[in-house]
Amino acid sequence: MAKILAVDDSASMRGMVAFTLRNAGHDVSEAENGQLALDAAKGSSFDLVLADVNMPVMDGLSMVRELRTLPAYKGVPILMLTTESHTDKKMEGKAAGATGWLVKPFDPEQLLATVKRVLG
């Protein structure tokens, strides 16, 4: 069981991610945008952060940059949930400090496999 933060402005996507991970026994918190995620991250210690790229208020890339400035989130895996198959988007995420990405569409099994892979 891991503590996971799911960040997405889409309630359906966030709900699906949280639902899937909770079913797998993880402790999942949810945030609607980067700013709320940042607030949540400061008040807790997550083992993994899953974040959408395009979000209002604070997008995923800015959120990753901010998170990486926090000592507690130096090496914590952060995965971007992205539909962009263009490599530049992925590289932007990496440059911001993301660990990797999960390309939408993904089904619950893919999500769980990736999470398992990251949590080791």
Partner: peptide, 25 residues
């Protein structure tokens, strides 16, 4: 506009509407 299209694309594929997803793409 991009964000809206993007969310629909991602969600459509995830929730079982691949035709819609590729269209929105």
């Amino acid at each position: 506009i991009f964000r809206a299209a993007h969310s629909i694309k991602g969600g459509a594929a995830t929730f079982g509407f691949p035709e819609m997803s590729s269209f929105t793409h």
